[in-house]
């Protein structure tokens, strides 16, 4: 996750338009009230909250993945757009480059 966020922030620093999409278990990364210190992990919520400073505001979660895990948007750290698998597929096709984790 850390090395993936490094790419996200670096792309923004190079004035690239960044669109973030969370699907599958990736959605858990956005959950509020995480206790990263229990597992001796770094708390990524600080980075997610700072994304807007980097002009990264286009953040989507996949509707089907949210439903399958019974997660609602108010349980997430940051404001997101909920999009269907079909919509996200179309958006990914518009990207020049796609990075995934």
């Amino acid at each position: 996750m850390q090395e993936f966020l490094d790419i996200v922030l670096m792309a923004s620093a190079f004035d690239q338009r960044v669109v973030l999409v969370f699907e599958g278990d990736g959605i858990y990364a956005l959950m509020k009230d995480q206790q990263a210190e229990v597992l001796d992990l770094k708390d990524n919520s600080l980075i997610f909250n700072a994304l807007s400073i980097y002009d990264i505001n286009d953040i989507s979660v996949e509707k089907e993945s949210m439903q399958a895990r019974s997660i609602s948007v108010d349980q997430l750290l940051i404001p997101v757009i909920t999009s269907s698998r079909h919509e996200l597929k179309q958006r990914l096709q518009l990207a020049d480059q796609v990075f995934s984790l």
């Binding site: 790419i7 670096m10 620093a13 190079f14 480059q97």
Partner: peptide, 10 residues
């Protein structure tokens, strides 16, 4: 650093 990745991408 990652800057060289971005440079290559662009």
């Amino acid at each position: 650093g990652l800057g060289l990745l971005m440079e290559a991408l662009i």
